[in-house]
Amino acid sequence: MALITVSSPHTTRKGNHTGAFMRQVLYATLPGIAVLTWLFGYGTLINLSFAVIVALLTEALVLKIRGRDIRFYLSDYSAVITAVLLAIAIPPTSPWWLTLVGVTFAIVIAKQLYGGLGMNPFNPAMVGYVLLLISFPAEMTRWVAPNEAHSFSTSLQLFFGHIGDVDALTGATPLDTWRTWAGNAEQLASHPILHGNVAGMGWEWVNLAFLLGGLYLIARGIITWHIPAGVLAGVLAMALPFWLIDDIRYGDPLFHLFSGATMLGAFFIATDPVSAATSRNGRLIFGFLIGVLVWVIRTFGGYPDAMAFAVLLLNLSAPTIDYYTQPRTYGHKAAKRGARK
């Protein structure tokens, strides 16, 4: 017989495991993935599967080079999450090499070279996305029109790089369209893609699906409500007053909230705990500033969507935000500010 001698506490919450947390996040993306597939065809699924395989292989390879226990580190599912988020973010028409470059860069450069899970200052998926966006802008903006989902064979062809008549297969997204015709009431009214049931056509469902998944995560206690609420509040805080001032020039709040990657970003990307702020107030500020930046870049920037840039910029500021939002410790008169003596 042997007795275990360890430090207290001797019990932990059941099912308390990073891997389990990450699996919950994966489950929460399922509605979004389903809607994407329904709207845009099998390209999303094909890319997603490929991205996951690439991520696991590259992660395993780097772990081997770094001399780490491969099975132990793969079991936290963090590489899978990165792959899934990146695959969701890139267009379903993307060829295989786009996914390969993005995922490899995300895993190797943005994550493992910083020391692996927990050490990366930036959201790896977004680093990969931004790399692709500025390197291959054409491929990265080639979205399918929402009502013309490709067949499985077309998706496969696209995946293997047989583009064919690209223009026939793709169309502009609502955000793109708005950017092009902002200020021109006649044109805006003539594009059906801007007039779905809630917001831009098709994308409203994508966003609603991700909102559903996000609410599930909050309900399960996987993420706290602070960052998503901050992001949505930030978008709203910018979109609403400007829309009230000039509804031809500036999109309406619902359009901003339910277009592009707003919900995906608010619930799945900005909430990546490693690169986000950690204190409660810090998270609210972090999210709010992302929301503001998203609206600003969408409205005035050179890119149609802005979630990736906004998240990366705020990742940079997260340590500063944490520094200024430390809670007041029990028994202390005021909160200390980090390293100040």
């Binding site: 017989m1 042997a2 007795l3 430090s7 780490r68 132990f72 580190y73």
Partner: peptide, 19 residues
């Protein structure tokens, strides 16, 4: 207390005890 072993490592914490 000593510092825990660290990420991915575990120490032998059991002491043999007679019946």
């Amino acid at each position: 207390w000593h510092k825990p072993e660290g990420i991915g490592l575990r120490s032998d914490t059991s002491v043999p005890v007679n019946v």
